[in-house]
C-alpha cells in the first residue's frame, strides 16, 4: 500500500466519491429514478445527472485552479451550487 503514496486530502476525496456512489446506488435500489427532461438537452436519470455534475465540476476546478488565482474552495463552492441546481432541475 505504501507505494500508492496516500495523502489525507486524496484519501478524503476517494472516500467522498465512494460514499456518494454507495448512497446513490442504495437510493436507486429503494426508489428507482425515472428518466425525465429538465433544462439539459437530453432525458436524464438521477445517476446521469450525478455523472454530468461530477464531470463538469472537475472542469470547473481545473478552470479555476489553472487560470485564476482564486482558492480551490471557491471552485468547490461553485461546483456544489451547480451540482444542486443540476440534480434538482437538470
Amino acid at each position: 500500500m505504501s507505494w500508492m503514496v496516500w495523502t489525507t486530502p486524496t484519501a478524503g476525496f476517494f472516500i467522498g466519491i465512494g460514499l456518494i456512489l454507495a448512497s446513490m446506488s442504495i437510493w436507486q435500489y429503494v426508489s428507482p429514478s425515472i428518466e425525465r427532461k429538465g433544462f439539459l438537452p437530453i432525458k436524464t436519470t438521477r445517476g446521469d445527472r450525478l455523472f454530468i455534475g461530477l464531470l463538469t465540476s472537475a472542469f470547473i476546478h481545473l478552470g479555476i485552479v489553472g487560470f485564476t488565482d482564486l482558492s480551490i474552495l471557491v471552485a468547490t463552492a461553485i461546483s456544489a451550487i451547480w451540482m444542486a441546481i443540476l440534480m434538482r432541475w437538470g
Binding site: 446506488s25 436507486q28 435500489y29 436519470t45 445517476g47 446521469d48 455523472f51
Partner: peptide
C-alpha cells in the same frame, strides 16, 4: 439492474 448504464460506460 441498478447502475447498468453507468457500469457500461
Amino acid at each position: 439492474f441498478v447502475g447498468d448504464k453507468h457500469l457500461f460506460f
